[in-house]
Structure formats: C-alpha cells, structure tokens
Design a protein around this nucleic acid. Structure first.
Length: 109
DNA sequence: CGTATGACGAGCC
DNA sequence: AGGCTCGCCATAC
C-alpha cells in the first residue's frame, strides 16, 4: 500500500484509534510506535497537524495528565465534551482515562 | 551537513 | 512541591 508512512502519518494513525472519552500520553503513543524516547517527536507531529484532519489531537496529554499545548482552554473543552473530568488543578486522572492501547484487532493495513 | 527547535519525560537540586 | 537540566529524536533552516 502506498507508503505514506512518514513518521507523522504513523502518529496520526495511532492517535486516530484513541476512543472518545479516553486519553493517551505523548510517551505512550511513542512507545506504541516503537520509539522508547520519541515523545517529543509525537508532539511535533501533532503540532504540524492542521484543522479538520479528523485526528483527535486533544486526547493527547503529557505524562502528568496535563495539557501541554498552548490552547489549553480549547483542549479541555473538547475533552470535557467527551466526558473527561478535569481535577481542580487542571489535570486528568490517567488511571481512569488513559487508553489501554491499540486494539490487537486493529488492522495495520 | 551542523545547529536549533519543540504539544516530552525522567532526574536532580 | 516546584523549577531547572539533560537526554532523545524527527524536522526545519
């Protein structure tokens, strides 16, 4: 299949699998892609993302369960609209909301 | 091709 | 607990 598999595309493919109401961390996504220390690269990919791509970028938080992007207000609203509850300190309980990982049934294509 | 940058993360002070 | 530094890695220039 067309190898559009640039590293960015790989990131998007994983992020797109995160279900509504769940979140994932940069490092977590990186691990799923096989980059033990590529968390920053995941951030780069999401940053390069333009609007209307359909990629649920807002479901990505840092290891502390906090928003790392500039437009925090928007991201929090998007998550809350999916049922994610933020703590008073502006973080989310990863124990509760962190996604388990890509389904083993997800076809790699 | 070397340097700088960044939506990270773990460690150290 | 909070802030700073350093390591990692794909892009940008």
């Amino acid at each position: 299949m067309h190898k559009l598999n640039s590293d960015f595309e790989q990131v998007y493919q994983v992020v797109r699998q995160i279900p509504s109401g769940k979140v994932a961390t940069y490092g977590q996504v990186a691990l799923w892609l096989g980059w033990p220390h590529g968390a920053r690269t995941v951030g780069w990919a999401l940053r390069a993302l333009s609007e209307g791509t359909g990629v649920p970028w807002h479901r990505i938080l840092n290891a502390q369960g906090r928003i790392s992007q500039a437009d925090e207000e928007l991201q929090q609203e998007l998550l809350e609209s999916e049922g994610v509850i933020f703590r008073p300190d502006g973080s989310v309980d990863l124990k509760q909301y962190q996604w388990d990982g890509p389904s083993l049934f997800a076809d790699p294509t």
